[in-house]
Simulated scan of single mutants.
Amino acid sequence: MIFETKRLLVRKLKITDLEGFYELESNPKVLQYATGEVKTFLECEEELENLIEKYDEFENTFWIYAVERKSDKEFIGTVALVKTNEEDEIGYRFIEKYWYNGYAKEVCGGLITYCKLVNLTKIIGYVVDENKASAKVLEYYNFKQVKKFISDDIGLPETKYELYL
């Protein structure tokens, strides 16, 4: 276990997460504000295997973890802690059927606590401006807007947020 919240457990990904991981990564609605590119089952299997292998890499800076519900051990999404341009970026995504349950807010709070425990001093998040729900989550935790731009990967207006811990 990496950390837990009241209803959620954040842990390393396992190959048995493949079905849920595919449901997450093959849904265009889930990815519309991320890469925008859905993946096939085989692409998901390969990506999941690569993410699992990264846990053992020396000086890994790309951590993607599983989010599961404590109540039924159901895989519901992923959370990310990635070093980008010397900054520590957080992110999360959830399988569509688990939206609107407060999981993003809950896991973000847990992630902030975890980042403090591992002695990070600042975390950042990028949110496509159309993604009002994710912006609300970051603003709830007092992330400050620091930059507006057009994203390189999906060509949409995006905002960079930061939070000093």
Rank of each mutant, 00 (worst) to 15 (best):
F3A: 06
F3N: 10
E4R: 10
K6W: 05
R7S: 13
V10T: 06
V10G: 05
I15C: 04
I15T: 15
T16D: 11
D17Q: 07
G20A: 04
E23Y: 02
N27Q: 10
N27L: 05
P28M: 13
V30C: 03
V30L: 04
T35S: 14
G36H: 07
N50F: 03
K54F: 10
Y55D: 10
D56V: 00
D56R: 12
E59L: 14
N60V: 03
T61C: 13
V67S: 01
E68Q: 12
E68K: 02
R69D: 09
R69P: 09
K70F: 02
K70R: 13
D72P: 13
F75N: 02
I76C: 02
I76E: 01
T78C: 11
V79K: 05
A80D: 15
L81Y: 05
V82K: 09
K83I: 15
E86C: 06
D88F: 14
E89P: 03
E89R: 07
I90M: 12
I90N: 04
R93Y: 02
F94H: 03
I95G: 00
I95T: 01
E96D: 09
Y98F: 15
Y98K: 02
W99G: 01
W99H: 04
N101R: 12
N101K: 15
Y103W: 08
K105L: 13
V107D: 02
I112G: 03
I112E: 03
I112H: 09
Y114T: 09
C115K: 06
V118T: 09
N119G: 07
N119V: 09
N119C: 12
I123R: 07
I123V: 15
G125F: 08
G125H: 08
G125N: 13
E130N: 11
N131E: 08
S134C: 09
A135P: 01
Y140M: 09
Y141C: 06
Y141F: 15
N142R: 11
V146Y: 09
V146F: 06
I150P: 03
I150L: 11
G155W: 13
L163R: 11
Y164W: 11
